[in-house]
Each structure stands twice: as C-alpha cells, then as structure tokens.
Design a protein around this nucleic acid. Structure first.
Lengths: 157, 157
DNA sequence: TGTTGATCTGGAGCGCGCTCCAGCCCCTAG
DNA sequence: CTAGGGGCTGGAGCGCGCTCCAGATCAACA
C-alpha cells in the first residue's frame, strides 16, 4: 500500500511517516517503480507497536534505540527486556504520582465547592497576592475590616 | 528575598522565574532600590502551587489562565473550579490509560522473559521486518528450516 | 497530450518550555 | 577606587516532535 493509504490506516500523517523513517523509527519500506513507498502489513503491525511505545511516554530516541535493537533480532531480546522493564518502572512511578495529584486536585475542588456553597469564606483561601501592583499583602497596612488572623488554612490553589 | 535565593528555595532556575513572570505565570514581584526583584513568602506559596499544577500536566497556557483568574479574586472561583474539575478528569483518564499500558508492558516483559528462559522460541515473537533491506519476509522464500506456521501469537514488541 | 492528483526530496518553520548570552547596572568588600 | 558578584533586559537558541513548503516526478484519465 502507498503512503496515503498507510497514513489513513495508521492515523499517522504522511509527513510523520516520512519523519519516522528518517529518524529510524520505521523500517524503510520497499519502493515501487515510480519511487513511491510500498508499505506492507508488517509495517501496519510495526506502526501499532510504535503507537504503544509512544503512548507509554517513551521518547523518540529510546523508541529508535528499541527499533534498532529489534532489527538486530533475537540476540537483542535481553536488552529490549531491560528497556521495557526500565520503562515499566517509569510508567508505574508516573501513575503513582498521578494518584497523588488526583488526591490533591480533589481536595482543592472540595474546598472551592465549599466556597461556592457559601460554607467557607474566600478570604480563608487565597494566598493574597494582589493582582494590580504585584505587591503582596505582606507589608500592606490593611485598611479593610477583616483581620487576617486565621487565614492560610489552605495553601490556596 | 532576591531572585537568586528564591531560585534556590523553589528549585526553579532564575531564567525560568523571569520567563514565568513574562508569560503571566507568576505575579511580578516588587523591586528594590536597585531594580532587583523582591520575592515574598507569598511568592513561595505561589511557586508551590504552580509546581502542583505543572506536575498535573497542565500546560503553561492553562496555568496562565488559571493565574489570571486567581488574580481576579473570589469572583473567579467558579471558573477555577471548572478548570480544576476538567483537569482532574484528564488526570484520571491519563491514569487509566497508564494502567492499560502497564498491563501491556508487563505482558510483553513476561513473553520476553520466556524467550530468555528458553521456553519460547524467538521466531514465534517478532513480526519479521528484516533490518538490512527493509523488505519484509512477507514474500520471502524462506530458505531456513523453521517453517513459519504458527507465528504471530504475539504482535511482537 | 494535457491536466490532475499522489508522491518524492531537502529544508525551513512551529509551539512548547525553557535556557543561554551580551552588554549593562548596582552594591559591597578590599 | 576597583574588582567581583549578583541582577537587569531583550533577544537568540535549543530539543522535541512534528508540520509545512517549493519544486520536481510519476501514473492515470479525458
């Protein structure tokens, strides 16, 4: 199949496909009489595989490295295994981090909802960097009524 | 505190701090007599907060938007709430995706380990794009002994 | 035969998120 | 008074991962 079809079927743009080939992410396909790339079904499978690696957040450098290893055949399986293990570790760590982030976001959302509901006063919330001047309330002589006594219950997203 | 200290305490480089200020991610600090930026403790809290947003994968555009809203004060809490909710959804989705990726990587690792252990033959594994020519085995007349009968049990990372 | 559409190549450009640099100013210590 | 260190500004550069473009070729169709 030619590059247009292949692009449609993989969802990768024509430019991206040529780019991937240039940087060694995709084995160069055969050419037909007119010089056009002829992609095979194996290339489709390869593209799926790239998609998986990419979706894991692996950068193109590592992906190219992996591709080169794979081209070396079974001899490189040990090293590929190591790469995948390392990458799995990173993915796991990232997922744990996101779990924490989720918790934090949820808490902030709860707090904000309380403000919207009226059960929490906004001035107990923000960290009071005044917008216009960029000066902080740090050394303002606060003119208004509300004393700043018990603020900073929340770090104030 | 001046920019050098602030940089040390936040872990953000001096250049990054000025960059953040330029693009509206950080409220412009007051200046001392000599024109140097004077960061306050509130800026420290702000930096922490930016760090959280950034760690969630929010891009600088959205972060700047959020900062602008926050500078508007309590009136913008509704919109900030909406942003956080939307972002939380994205973080959740991303975490689910990573969970799938983890599964897939684990499977591949298991398979490769089986090859390394000798309990699985490598030729049952790869999708056989030959490295040198870029031609595929698709229409090779395979000379070697091993018939390709039952290959492709695995999509062959 | 001429036109159209797909593809080719090499190279420039882009958006993001910084990072670095030149040339200048200010402050303090020696 | 001078040297050094930190800070300032504006603007260029960079790595990533594409994306776009000009100008040429090729295949099919009217």
């Amino acid at each position: 199949m030619r590059i247009g079809d292949f692009s449609t079927r993989t969802g990768l743009s024509i430019d991206t496909l040529r780019y991937y080939e240039r940087i060694g992410l995709m084995p160069p396909p055969a050419r037909d009489g007119g010089g056009s790339r002829q992609y095979s079904d194996d290339h489709l499978r390869w593209a799926e595989f790239l998609d998986v690696l990419k979706s894991t957040g692996m950068g193109v450098r590592d992906m190219a490295r992996y591709c080169a290893l794979r081209a070396d055949g079974a001899a490189s399986i040990g090293e590929r295994l190591a790469m995948l293990r390392g990458h799995l570790d990173r993915v796991r760590a990232e997922r744990r981090r996101l779990a924490q982030v989720e918790t934090l976001l949820s808490e902030k959302i709860t707090t904000f909802q309380a403000v919207v509901d009226g059960s929490l006063d906004p001035s107990d919330l923000t960290c009071q960097i005044s917008p216009a001047t960029g000066a902080t309330t740090h050394d303002d002589q606060r003119i208004g009524a509300r004393p700043r006594a018990h603020r900073r219950a929340e770090p104030g997203l």
